[in-house]
Computed example of a mutant assay.
Amino acid sequence: MRISNPRIVFNEIPNGLPNATTLVVDGAQTIDLDEVPLQGGILVKVLALSLDPYMRNRMRPADVPGDMPAFPLGDVVTGFGVGVVLRSETSLVNVDEHVYGFIAYQRYIVIPSINGNALDMEGLGLQIIHNKYNLPWRYYVGILGMSGQTAYYGLKDISRPKAGETLFVSAASGAVGHLVVQFAKALGLKVIASCGSDQKVSLVKSLGADHVFNYKTVDTAAELKQHGPVDIYFDNVGGPTLEAAIENAAQKARFVLCGMNLWLLNRYRVKMEGLIMTDWIDKYLEEFHEVVPRNLASGKLKYLEHAYYGMDRVGEAFVDLLTGMNVGKSVLVLEDAV
Rank of each mutant, 00 (worst) to 15 (best):
I103L: 15
I109S: 13
M325I: 00
I276L: 15
T278D: 05
M68A: 15
N19S: 12
K200A: 01
Y139S: 04
D231V: 01
L49V: 04
N11S: 13
Q251Y: 12
I192L: 14
R254T: 07
N134Q: 14
I232K: 01
L262W: 10
F10Y: 15
I111P: 06
R267P: 02
V270T: 05
V327S: 08
K252D: 10
F102W: 15
L23T: 13
P136G: 08
A244Q: 12
V333D: 04
Y233G: 02
Y100A: 12
K185G: 05
G274I: 03
S4T: 15
A244P: 13
C258L: 09
D320Q: 10
H306V: 03
K185T: 06
G83T: 05
E89P: 01
V36K: 02
T241A: 10
D279E: 12
Q39P: 03
N15E: 09
G324I: 10
T166I: 07
G74T: 11
G315N: 02
L119R: 14
F255D: 08
R267Y: 04
Y54C: 11
V77G: 11
M59G: 11
C258S: 08
D320Y: 05
T278Q: 10
G239M: 04
Y140T: 09
A104N: 15
I31V: 14
G74W: 15
P69M: 09
V24T: 15
L17M: 13
R7G: 09
V218K: 02
A70T: 02
W263T: 13
K156E: 08
L23M: 15
Y139M: 08
M311G: 03
G74A: 13
L242P: 14
A250T: 11
G148S: 06
E335Y: 06
G154M: 09
E305Y: 03
Y100V: 10
I3R: 04
I111K: 11
K302A: 10
I8K: 04
K216R: 11
G259T: 08
E290Q: 14
D219R: 01
M325K: 14
Y139K: 00
R60T: 13
G41W: 13
I276M: 12
E305Q: 12
L38R: 08
G116Y: 15
